[in-house]
Nucleic acid binder design. Structure first.
Lengths: 200, 200
DNA sequence: TTTTATTGATTGATGAGTCAATCAAAAATA
DNA sequence: TATTTTTGATTGACTCATCAATCAATAAAA
C-alpha cells in the first residue's frame, strides 16, 4: 500500500476527520485515536505527520479559517456596490458550509479552547477582526465612521449570536431567517441615519 | 475538624471552585483534583458529595442559571412599563456578575459541552427560551406578535454574540457599550414599526 | 539500497472513581 | 455525669482505564 506522495492526502484527511469528530463531540477532548480512526489510519500516523495533537488542532482551526476567507473573497468579488458587499458578507457567514452543525460545534469548541491556547485565540481574533474590518470598509462609504463602527460591531455580534444559538438546536431559526434578521439590522440602522440626514 | 453540617458548605464551595477553575481554563477538561484543590478539600471528598464529575458539572451549570434567573426576576420587578422591562432584561444580561471573564468562559465551555451532554444542553435551552419568552412578553404589548418574534430573536442573538466576542478579549467593547448597542437595536426597530403605523 | 508510508506494541503519565481507615461530634446508654 | 456507640466528615492509598507519544519493524516504491 505504501504509495509515495501520500503526505498531503493524509494531512487533509486527518484535518477533515478532526473537524468532523470535534463537531460530533463538541469538544477538543477528542483523542488522536478517534481522529485517526475517522480518517482511516493508525494513531501513530497522525503523530507522524503532525507531531502532536496540539499541532493537528491548530491546523484544523487554520483550515476552518482559510475556508471562510476563501468564501468571503469570492463573495466580495461577485458584488460591486458597498451595500451589495455588505449583503455578500452576511450571506457568506451563514453559507451552508459554515452553518453545518459540525462546523458550528467545532467553532464553539475552538472558542472555548481559545481560553487556554494562545495560538487558537490568535486565529479567532483574526477572524473577528477580518469580519469587522470587511464590514467597516463598506459601511464607511455609506455613513459616518463612528456610526459605521457601531453598526459593524452590532452586525458582527448578531452573526456570532445566531451561530451560538444554532448550536443548541433549539429555537432553530434557519439560514434564510438568520440572513434576513441581520440584513434587517443593517438596513434599518442605515435608513435611520439617512432620515436623520447623517448619511447619503 | 470534622464538624457536623458541612455538606451544604462543601457543596457550595465545590461548585464555586468548579466555576472558577472552568473559567480559568476555559474548558470542561478540568480535573476533579483541580476543583477540589481550589475548594481546599481532597478529591475524594468531591466524589463523596457529587458522585461523579459529570454531576458536579451539572450542578455548576444549574447554579449559573439560577443566579441569572434570580437577577432577572429582581430586575423585572423593579421595572413597570414594558419598555422599561425590556431595558431591564438587557441590562441584567450584561450585569457585572454575568460579564466577568470567568463567567463568560464558563458559559462558553458549557455551550460546547452541550453537544455531548444532553443534560447540559437542556439547561442551556431553558436559558435561551427564558430570555426569548421574557423579551416576547414585553414586546408583544408594543408591537404585533410576528414583529415581536423577530425583534426578540434578534436581540437575544445580539446579546449572545456580544458575549462570545467578549470571550476573545479582542475589540473589547465594554458593558455600557454592549447595553447601548442592544438598546439601540430594540429602539430603532420599534421606532420603525411605529412610523409604519404598525405599533402604538 | 535508500527513502517514504505505515502500523503494532509499548511506555509513561494522568485522572476518575473506590475503599478502608481515621477523627471528632452527637446520641444513646449506663 | 461518665462511657460507649453511632454517624458524618475527611483523606491517603490504590485500581483501572485511557491517552499522547515513541519506536522498532515491515513493506513498497524509487
Amino acid at each position: 500500500m505504501p504509495k509515495v506522495g501520500m503526505e498531503p492526502v493524509r494531512r487533509k484527511a486527518l484535518v477533515d476527520a478532526a473537524l468532523r469528530v470535534i463537531g460530533d463531540q463538541g469538544t477538543l477532548a477528542v483523542t488522536m485515536s478517534d481522529i485517526a480512526r475517522r480518517a482511516g489510519v493508525s494513531p501513530a500516523l497522525a503523530h507522524h505527520y503532525f507531531g502532536s495533537k496540539e499541532q493537528l488542532l491548530i491546523e484544523t482551526v487554520r483550515s476552518l479559517l482559510r475556508q471562510l476567507r476563501d468564501d468571503t473573497v469570492t463573495a466580495l468579488n461577485a458584488a460591486t456596490a458597498p451595500r451589495e458587499k455588505l449583503s455578500a458578507l452576511i450571506r457568506v457567514s451563514f453559507q451552508a458550509s459554515q452553518f453545518a452543525p459540525d462546523t458550528i460545534a467545532a467553532w464553539l469548541a475552538f472558542y472555548s479552547e481559545a481560553q487556554r491556547s494562545e495560538d487558537v485565540r490568535r486565529f479567532l481574533v483574526v477572524y473577528a477582526r477580518r469580519l469587522r474590518s470587511n464590514l467597516m470598509a463598506n459601511l464607511k462609504v455609506l455613513c459616518p465612521v463612528d456610526d459605521a463602527e457601531r453598526i459593524a460591531e452590532g452586525a458582527a455580534a448578531m452573526i456570532d449570536g445566531l451561530y451560538i444559538r444554532q448550536s443548541l438546536r433549539s429555537a432553530p431559526i434557519g439560514i434564510e431567517a438568520s440572513i434576513a434578521l441581520t440584513e434587517d439590522y443593517v438596513t434599518s440602522h442605515l435608513d435611520q441615519l439617512h432620515r436623520q440626514g447623517r448619511a447619503p
